[in-house]
Amino acid sequence: MKFLLLHGLFLVFSFGAVAYVSFLEGTSKVQTQEKSLARDVSIRVFGEDGEEWRVQGRELVSFGPELSLLDVLLKSKGGYEVKANTITFQRDKNLGVLKGNVEIRGEALFVKTENAIIDFSKNLLYGEGEVLVWKESNFIEGKGFKAYLKPLKVIISDVRTKHEI
């Protein structure tokens, strides 16, 4: 009799444990995403007007829908170069978010900032942080900028300039 009672008690506890584990599995929000990695990457990006960009980087990391490239160099057919520590692509909007030591170089133009966004469709670079711009011997400091690359037009907010004559 004790054996049947112990066996029945064991069955009740095991069904209870299975039900509790099933409950925990249903309430947990754990999601798994695959992470992919590629080294020495070169990507070609086309804009609205056919302006082509070649995006090169040391390492490409894909984590879910996000695609990031480390140690980035962007080169346009128009002769512009953009360097940054990272770029994160927003593929649905044809944008890239540049972060860390962003430098934009063109013929007689140099722009330095910490963060910027590049709109590949419009050939536009813009940002809201501190920006330093050199054009020939002129120096401009400001907060926030827009740089249209075709044709070249740079708009800087909160400007402070220094000119050499």
Rank of each mutant, 00 (worst) to 15 (best):
L132H: 12
I140R: 02
F145I: 11
E141H: 11
D158M: 14
K135C: 00
L152W: 10
D158A: 11
S157K: 15
K135W: 00
G142V: 07
Y148S: 07
E130R: 14
V154S: 04
G144C: 04
I140Y: 14
E136A: 06
W134E: 14
L152E: 14
V159Q: 04
K153Y: 05
A147C: 03
K135N: 12
L149T: 06
G142Y: 08
I156V: 15
K146Q: 12
S137I: 08
I155K: 12
Y148C: 02
I156Q: 11
K150V: 10
Y148M: 11
F139N: 01
K143T: 14
I155E: 11
K135A: 08
P151V: 12
F139A: 02
V131C: 04
I155G: 01
K146E: 09
G144K: 08
K135Q: 14
Y148H: 12
E136H: 07
I156Y: 03
G129N: 15
V159Y: 05
E141F: 09
N138Y: 04
Y148E: 10
W134K: 11
D158K: 15
K135F: 00
F145L: 04
G142M: 08
W134P: 01
V133D: 01
P151Y: 08
K143E: 13
W134D: 05
K143D: 03
K146A: 04
Y148Q: 13
N138C: 04
S157M: 09
I140W: 03
V133H: 00
K150H: 06
F139I: 09
L152R: 12
S137V: 13
I140V: 15
K143P: 05
I155P: 04
